[in-house]
Design a protein around this nucleic acid. Structure first.
Length: 826
DNA sequence: AAAAAAC
């Protein structure tokens, strides 16, 4: 401690003792009175304390500064005189203080045992980080600003102007902030980028990728020649540069790591985590492809096939892998026309019998076109019966088509009531029973009149009935359950005062954190308009704030199962008084591994309601089918079941296409598909591939970010926000983004890997064409996948042409929207 | 088989 700053006479020294002088509460045990402690002073002046107490270690001298006496100053520290009832303190209620205390308790517990001076310093970054992450989550509506604004005046000051300035895209701010705060990271990143070539750039610029320097490249890389030779033998066309170029870039990356500096690659990968600014920065640097190429002569195709991850586990393994795979790869490569891929047993087993089936048939045509849809449907039903695999048909159909009866209890109970779109003409939310405050908010959100699914489910939900509702993706399901939920909670609380620490009255479960956030973003303003509070409870972020909010009292909880169950078990979340439970994407929540936690949570909800009452359940999904039986049987009583007549996924505004491609062309084609104007969402099957693809696009000069479970929550949120805000046009995601995620103007969805399930197809494709907009879905498959893909589309009741494509084909330009048909014909 | 979901 700076001795020269010690207080001179007069005032009791303890008031000026630097905070870190007290190591633990134990050191306080002989203190005349506890008021000297750090926590105590905060109690007297919460504004000065705040979550940013981490900045306090500026010590006693700081506290004594004149400026610190001003309540508005961030360093303000109360004196005894304003411990009473200063103006700023009016905002602090017992509730608020308790919430803050809870958070502080947690923090302090974590700190105890550490030294004091270092403690405070350690604290700062950590807290900052938490804060930032949270801000990411709820930019648009300043959600929960109750807690934030009160707890952290300092932060608020910084944050507020920015939020005001750019309300809709506040989230990006955060990204930028984060970046500014961490220059080092940037530097690391840049360094690494230097080491990586940017070959794909060429490809991109050319659009046709015809501009390459084939000679130079081939000469440089003996290994590559081998591949090249093989290819040339088969298809002379491949000699053309455009194929080489993009692939080069991609493989280059993998190859480098494996052959030359394997370990570095590993680190590199982890560290980068695909950082955000990589692409911009990288592109802004000078490119010296040749030099880079020299550095990394080897070309390892396996890297690409191996889905990235396994390749770099260890050196041993790597070399093994390579030895095994190389010959195999050649085999693969060459016979691309006829030869069975004996080296891929897994695929073979699935595909061979099917290929036999359609021997002699046209590559794509016969499979789909030789039969009528009825024929196909019948075959499908038989197959399904055999496999007892659920399908959309099992649930209901529009009344026009009598559903094929399956011996399924659930099926009968789920007979749906089809809402005719025409029936809801002229109906308003007020007609449906929604109060004026909520209605106004809805209008403000652009929902002036209810969509059919909303018109159907709102009255039933307000009656207190259990509801099952199926509405096409983008048909307004969130409001369909959100508005009546808020209205119901409001009614149930009519006349009662909001109590501190009240238990939630409603719970909304979602399968992913992003979806939970998005739902809250919709519901929160609705709830706030009638004085109700929401909070999100999901994993991947610190619990403290969530717990703090619950302590204060929340009316509606929105979250994901894991953290919710966690907090229930910790006794920090009490759903026993919840009157309503909503499951969004209910069928997904019933899948293996998901359903058990959901069941446990639902068993807890409403368990303490007065005798005779039970909690109401609302289940929503675009693909609601009998998969929800596990929940319906246990939790729902006489549910009202709705769907919208004639509303299949295919009846929407989406243009579905299937591109049959050769596997080796995949990356080239993907690059040229995403190299376009407009937002593009690319789905990959695995996290590793999603990551790889995003890097590939980036390296090709197309800024792209990824979204998958290997990213931390901050990055996930940030990357999604980048697409939303338009700072990036391409997002590569796993199926974490398949359901529910709403980004206004995605006009192209590319499925780099075809989905395995028809439901997944429907949800993925539902990311575009939202609320009546136009959109296109392009699915890439290999030839041997066509049959399975056709079956999948049949199940989804989607008609999509299958078209062969090779890099550089006009078709790809057309699908990317770079040219129109008119351009081609003129 | 993968993805998601808690620490």
């Amino acid at each position: 401690m700076p001795k020269n700053h010690k207080p001179k006479g007069g005032r009791p020294a303890r008031n000026f003792e630097p905070r870190y002088a007290k190591k633990t509460p134990f050191h306080d045990r002989h203190a005349p009175r506890p008021a000297a402690g750090r926590g105590e002073s905060s109690d007297r002046n919460p504004r000065a304390d705040s979550s940013f107490e981490s900045r306090e270690p500026r010590s006693a001298s700081y506290d004594r500064r004149p400026g610190s006496r001003s309540p508005g100053h961030r360093g303000h520290r109360a004196t005894e005189s304003d411990a009473g009832a200063g103006a700023p303190k009016r905002r602090w209620t017992a509730q608020e203080r308790a919430g803050r205390d809870e958070a502080r308790t947690i923090r302090n517990r974590a700190e105890s045992g550490r030294g004091d001076a270092p403690r405070s310093r350690d604290e700062r970054p950590r807290f900052d980080r938490d804060d930032r992450a949270r801000r990411d989550d709820r930019a648009p509506y300043g959600r929960d600003d109750r807690a934030r604004r009160d707890d952290r005046p300092r932060f608020d000051r910084d944050d507020r102007p920015r939020r005001d300035d750019r309300a809709p895209y506040g989230r990006d701010d955060r990204a930028r902030t984060g970046r500014d705060e961490r220059p080092r990271y940037d530097r690391d990143d840049r360094a690494r980028r230097d080491e990586r070539p940017r070959f794909d750039r060429d490809a991109r610029q050319g659009a046709g990728r015809d501009d390459r320097r084939p000679d130079a490249r081939r000469d440089d890389r003996p290994r590559f020649d081998r591949d090249d030779r093989a290819r040339r033998d088969d298809r002379p066309r491949y000699d053309t540069p455009r194929y080489d170029t993009p692939r080069y870039g991609r493989d280059d990356r993998a190859r480098t790591g494996r052959d030359e500096r394997p370990r570095y690659d590993r680190d590199d990968r982890a560290r980068t985590g695909r950082d955000d600014r990589r692409s911009d920065d990288r592109r802004s640097e000078g490119r010296r492809p040749e030099e880079r190429r020299d550095e990394r002569p080897r070309f390892d195709r396996d890297a690409r096939q191996g889905a990235g991850r396994d390749d770099r586990r260890s050196d041993d393994r790597r070399s093994e892998t390579r030895r095994d795979d190389r010959p195999r790869f050649e085999r693969n490569d060459r016979p691309r026309t006829d030869r069975p891929r004996t080296d891929r047993p897994r695929v073979d087993r699935d595909e061979r019998p099917r290929r036999d089936d359609r021997a002699g048939s046209d590559r794509f045509g016969a499979r789909r076109d030789d039969r009528t849809r009825e024929d196909r449907t019948r075959g499908r039903d038989d197959r399904r019966a055999a496999q007892s695999r659920p399908s959309r048909d099992d649930w209901t159909r529009t009344p026009a088509t009598k559903p094929v009866q399956a011996p399924d209890v659930v099926h009968e109970r789920l007979e749906a009531q089809a809402v005719q779109a025409a029936e809801v003409q002229g109906v308003t939310f007020a007609d449906l029973g929604i109060g004026s405050n909520i209605t106004e908010v809805l209008v403000g959100m652009g929902a002036e009149t209810p969509f059919p699914i909303q018109a159907a489910s709102i009255p039933a939900a307000l009656e207190g009935r259990d509801v099952l509702a199926r509405g096409r993706t983008g048909s307004g399901k969130t409001i369909a359950f959100g508005a009546p939920l808020v209205e119901s909670v409001l009614r149930s609380q009519a006349g009662t005062k909001r109590e501190f620490g009240r238990a939630p009255k409603a719970i909304i479960l979602a399968p992913t954190r992003e979806l939970a956030l998005q739902i809250d973003r919709t519901i929160q303003p609705i709830a706030r308009s009638v004085g109700l509070f929401t909070t999100q409870i999901y994993g991947g972020v610190p619990q403290a704030r969530q717990v703090g909010a619950l302590k204060k009292g929340v009316d509606i909880v929105i979250g994901t199962p894991g953290r919710i169950e966690d907090l229930i078990q910790q006794g920090k979340l009490d759903l026993s008084g919840a009157r309503i439970a909503v499951l969004d994407e209910a069928d997904h929540m019933c899948e293996l591994g998901f359903v058990e936690p959901v069941q446990r949570i639902l068993r807890r909800t409403g368990s303490a309601l007065p005798a005779g009452e039970r909690s109401q359940k609302l289940l929503f999904s675009a693909t609601l089918d009998r998969e929800v039986a596990a929940l319906v049987d246990e939790f729902l009583v006489d549910p009202a079941v709705f769907e919208v007549a004639g509303e299949t996924q295919d009846s929407g505004t989406i243009d579905h296409r299937v591109l049959v491609i050769d596997h080796r062309d995949k990356t080239d084609i993907l690059i040229s598909l995403v190299d376009r104007e407009g937002k593009t969402l690319v789905f990959a099957r695995t996290r590793a591939y999603a990551e790889t693809l995003a890097e590939t696009f980036d390296d090709a000069g197309i800024p792209a970010v990824s979204l998958h479970g290997d990213l931390n929550q901050g990055k996930r949120t940030r990357n999604l926000a980048r697409l939303t805000s338009g700072r990036v046009q391409v997002l590569v995601a796993t199926d974490v983004a398949a359901r529910g995620i709403h980004v206004d103007d995605i006009d192209l969805v590319v499925q780099a890997d075809p989905p395995d399930e028809y439901k997944t197809y429907m949800h993925r494709s539902g990311r575009t064409g939202r609320a009546g907009r136009e959109g296109r879905v392009v699915t890439l498959i290999t030839r041997q996948r066509s049959r399975r893909m056709g079956e999948l589309l049949d199940r989804a009741e989607i008609d999509a042409p299958f078209q062969e494509a090779r890099p550089g084909d006009d078709l790809i330009d057309e699908l990317a929207g770079r040219v129109t048909l008119a351009d081609l014909t003129s």
